[in-house]
């Protein structure tokens, strides 16, 4: 069964009397464990699509089945719950919370799911070690490099063992060396069977994935299936 399944998904913004269609008729199916890249020129709707897939945004029309469940008509609380335990977000600008240290940042999604303190602390430690930050658990985000921050963000994204991991230009703010670190972590996640959807401008990143979806003006222009 496909993890992501959209039917004629549309997103339009009402700007005064003018109806701006940002995404139109997106039919997308992504299988469990697939590694997918979304590409396209700026303004083509990549982030908008990712937000819809991540249940941060509601479609104007169309249906979205996440893990077999129709989420296009859920209310805010239910969507929050799904964001917390089904979806992991990785942002271009890391988006860690400044007043919290590494461990606390990683713990946060587990906290919102009501996990007990001892469990979440143990898991956060484990995840920090997994992304190579076992020795920096007490550091606050501004004491870390961009690459390190993004690794914390990845640890946070996978804390609740989500069904899909969404990354919006995860290496966009990084130099190539730390970008490569991040990409290898994503590769690892893929190896472990996670479903990954990555928005990128970078052909090289796209080439690591199994499938590249090109967006143009809010529509799927073409799809490329990579060999691997």
């Amino acid at each position: 069964m496909s993890v992501v399944n959209t039917k004629k998904l549309c997103k339009a913004y009402q700007l005064g009397s003018f109806n701006l269609s940002v995404l139109c008729d997106i039919d997308l199916e992504i299988e469990q464990g697939q590694y997918v890249a979304i590409m396209g020129p700026s303004g083509s709707g990549k982030s908008t699509l990712l937000n819809l897939l991540g249940c941060l945004d509601k479609p104007s029309s169309g249906k979205y089945f996440l893990d077999g469940k129709d989420v296009s008509s859920l209310d805010d609380n239910e969507l929050s719950l799904i964001r917390g335990n089904r979806i992991g977000f990785i942002f271009q600008s890391y988006n860690l919370i400044n007043q919290l240290n590494v461990i606390e940042n990683i713990e946060l999604p587990m906290y919102y799911q009501g996990m007990s303190e001892s469990k979440s602390a143990a898991r956060a430690r484990e995840l920090a070690a997994k992304v190579g930050l076992g020795d920096r658990v007490k550091h606050r985000p501004f004491e870390l490099s961009g690459g390190q921050q993004q690794r914390v963000a990845i640890a946070r994204a996978i804390a609740n063992d989500p069904v899909i991991i969404l990354a919006d230009e995860p290496t966009g703010n990084l130099d190539s060396a730390s970008g490569a670190d991040i990409l290898s972590i994503l590769d690892d996640l893929h190896q472990q069977g996670k479903t990954l959807i990555v928005v990128t401008h970078d052909e090289e990143i796209a080439s690591r994935t199994q499938r590249i979806i090109h967006l143009l003006d809010g529509r799927i222009e073409r799809e490329i299936h990579n060999g691997n």
């Binding site: 941060l56 929050s80 719950l81 964001r83 917390g84 335990n85 860690l96 919370i97 799911q113 609740n160």
Partner: peptide, 12 residues
């Protein structure tokens, strides 16, 4: 920060 918290599962 509020946006981040909402994105990782915080309810209103």
């Amino acid at each position: 920060e509020i946006g981040i918290r909402r994105a990782i599962g915080a309810r209103k």
